[in-house]
Design a protein around this nucleic acid. Sequence first.
DNA 1: AAACTTACTAAACAGTGTTTAGTAATTGTA
DNA 2: TACAATTACTAAACACTGTTTAGTAAGTTT
Lengths: 211, 211
Amino acid sequence: MGVAERKERHKEELKKEILMAAKELFMEKGYEATSIRNIAEKIEYSPATVYLYYKDKDEIMHALHQEGFKMLVAYFGTLNTIPEPFGRLIAMGRAYIQFAMENPEMYELIFVMKDPIDHVASCADDSWDEGDRAYDVLFQTVVECQKSGDFQGFEPHGLSFTIWSTMHGLCSLRISGHLGHVAEASKVKPDVDSLMTYTFETFTGVLEKIR
Amino acid sequence: MGVAERKERHKEELKKEILMAAKELFMEKGYEATSIRNIAEKIEYSPATVYLYYKDKDEIMHALHQEGFKMLVAYFGTLNTIPEPFGRLIAMGRAYIQFAMENPEMYELIFVMKDPIDHVASCADDSWDEGDRAYDVLFQTVVECQKSGDFQGFEPHGLSFTIWSTMHGLCSLRISGHLGHVAEASKVKPDVDSLMTYTFETFTGVLEKIR
DNA sequence: AAACTTACTAAACAGTGTTTAGTAATTGTA
DNA sequence: TACAATTACTAAACACTGTTTAGTAAGTTT
């Protein structure tokens, strides 16, 4: 009979509904505002019901984690159309920044917060696959750059981690507000976003020079 | 009469005692464990008393903020003995990493967390002076490098922010555990710390190349 | 019709930051 | 010296958090 299947389907829908409510709250108001009670209220169920679908808040955050990586991948979507690897590397950086700026809470969730990755470490199943894959995209691009003659004399992993560090540092300093504060004090650029673009361009200049 | 002075002195001592209790809890167990109640218990006063000396938790965190920068400055202490600016820049990077690794919670407080810097933005008095000064140390070093012939064709602020981004990115990815995770997956180096040192060395290699 | 399972929730527990009202003890004044 | 005022402190509460437990209706199976 299809009754069990229908029920199963409904359960999956509710689980998805919980996740989407969490995603909306999280992306709009951040981690603090994403309480189990707030999620429950949004889907019009009791807080305890949420626990029937997710073990704890960490598990919800882990699920959101995967959502976040899907979004990042979407930002990387059009990169394949760029055949020249160095240009693709720069475009990747630009896309990374755009993702971080348009989805700061998501960026923090997947690249800054410790709790979700701790959860990931405890359940050894799917682990941090998405993150590993995202790194691999960068690494492969660097390798391709070297194949076409760029970055000679550098080891690709070392360079990849350096590039990731720079991009992550820039984005996280921007999101946390630290870049903005120093920007205001040093008055290098009129606003934070200008400074950010400017710093990125300086970085691309560095990459051009070691090309 | 010296009675009022003695009392005033005692009040200042208690305020310091609260801060030191907070510092100890914070550096050992992190932000979560540093609750007002825990602080109060440590100094053997009631939680409400803490509020007679600090407006709220943010104000305590802001005070700890300043403590953190004092510690960072201590790590930078011996840098003046290095006359050659480029070598000093590299040593600065090494000191920055050492500070981050030996005091991860403090590093997060002053460079990662948003809340304290929000508090800093609201009270416009002393603002984020320590951070600005720390940036200025980096900037001046870059300027000195250029004076002695390095980094020609680069604008010093752009380069300073790029360097800070790289260093911060590396340290924060290490502390948050993200670097460790990708390290394990990519198996570039046997352990995270090796990867971190290795990435830093790659970065110094980049700086050497654009020197 | 009775037993069992499912889906859900009210209420509680222990914790958080923070505020309010009140209490002793000390100090200043009449 | 007696009374008022100030100081330093705290118990208890409020509103929130994540999470668990016990219980309740409804649907399913026997």
